[in-house]
Design a protein around this nucleic acid. Structure first.
Lengths: 213, 213
DNA sequence: GTCTATAGGTTGATAGAC
DNA sequence: GTCTATCAACCTATAGAC
């Protein structure tokens, strides 16, 4: 499930040797996913991490500090995305390439959404979080820029049209992946199953972009 | 701002005559928007609604009941979408039509997101809410179906190609609107400003769909 | 239907020993 | 750095009068 995992103990037992901090972060993330931020208490985090509640405060000062640390730890997955998206631009079909890219975005969103939604539940936390995102230049526009580069490469090699606005095209694809991931997260079942598949969407976009040259 | 507004008192003062229930719902929605669900207490809801805390429990049994009522009351705005979207498909340019449709979805999402986030913060509420969405057939796929109809009309009148998959095309446009709205909600400022505009996106989609016939 | 008052429980955070 | 023990504040929900 790709936890925070600075420490490699997926199942913590007893006293975490030196990785109390990592254990606390992992426990907090687990609890957020399971029950939502509203029911995540420092007490329960401590219990699951196998440390005392006081240790939580020792390492993160207060609860907001803990949540911020969890959120920021969850953002490292974004940096890996560059490689994934850029790598898939060679000898596969256009539709397959878009499908791969869309899949990469969907799995990123799948991992990030639980944390992002938790942030939304607390306005103070949301403001602070947004500021840090801007500081680190990590907003949704990063995805746009990544795809912009991919499209530019595809245009250079003559695979897609050169006369389309790449950034808004990127928004179309990323938006589709985002809405699909978001719906899936709201309800695993009947709700998200009724959306068009990513496969169909990638195919459609490939047809639209490939037609003209 | 389109509150719950069963009662027409946007600014409640003193004792709400007979509309205590509506006043409580409106107050709860306000607080969710202002501070996030995490900091919404029955005590504060009662204070802002101008009623006693006991009245909250009298009308909604418990806190979960209150939140469910808020969420359901906040979702009736979906029906407005049909009219708005369908009306804008006559003698304006394709790009303008898509822009109008996208705008309608964005403002719908702008209104729905605060409530939807509240749902996400509590797993129990999320399950209950998702079930009701399925029951009432109100999920995101409704938006897809609406756009499907719009596209079908456009194809019949020869304005767009007939050989594209309409449902996945709909996902592209709705997804873009959703991601824009969601980003804006996360941070009003620098974060969402860096995404492509809806205008550009509508124009791009119009070009892509219009080329072939 | 609405109030006041309060029970009963949980929470975030601290103090001080080791 | 980690623990035990504890507190003050806060919350949901109920009881009972009007």
């Amino acid at each position: 499930m790709n936890e925070v995992d600075l420490n490699n103990s997926k199942v913590r037992r007893g006293r975490p040797a030196g990785g109390a901090q990592a254990a606390i972060l992992a426990a907090a993330l687990e609890l957020i996913k399971e029950r939502g931020l509203a029911h995540v208490t420092t007490r329960e985090v401590a219990r699951r991490a196998g440390v005392s509640e006081a240790s939580v405060f020792y390492h993160f000062h207060d609860k907001v500090g803990l949540l911020q640390a969890v959120v920021l730890a969850g953002l490292v997955t974004l940096e890996e995305l560059d490689l994934v998206a850029l790598s898939s631009s060679e000898d596969i079909s256009l539709a397959d390439a878009f499908f791969e890219i869309g899949s990469a975005f969907e799995s990123f969103f799948d991992r990030a959404l639980p944390v992002l939604e938790a942030v939304h539940a607390d306005t103070a936390l949301r403001v602070e979080f947004a500021e840090r995102l801007v500081q680190r230049d990590l907003g949704p526009h990063r995805g746009i820029e990544i795809l912009d580069t991919v499209f530019a490469n595809m245009a250079d090699t003559g695979r897609i049209a050169t006369n389309v606005d790449r950034r808004s095209t990127a928004l179309l694809l990323i938006g589709a992946a985002f809405l699909r991931s978001w719906s899936r997260h709201l309800s695993e079942g009947a709700l998200s199953d009724r959306l068009p598949t990513l496969e169909d969407t990638a195919k459609t976009l490939a047809e639209l972009l490939g037609k003209n040259a």
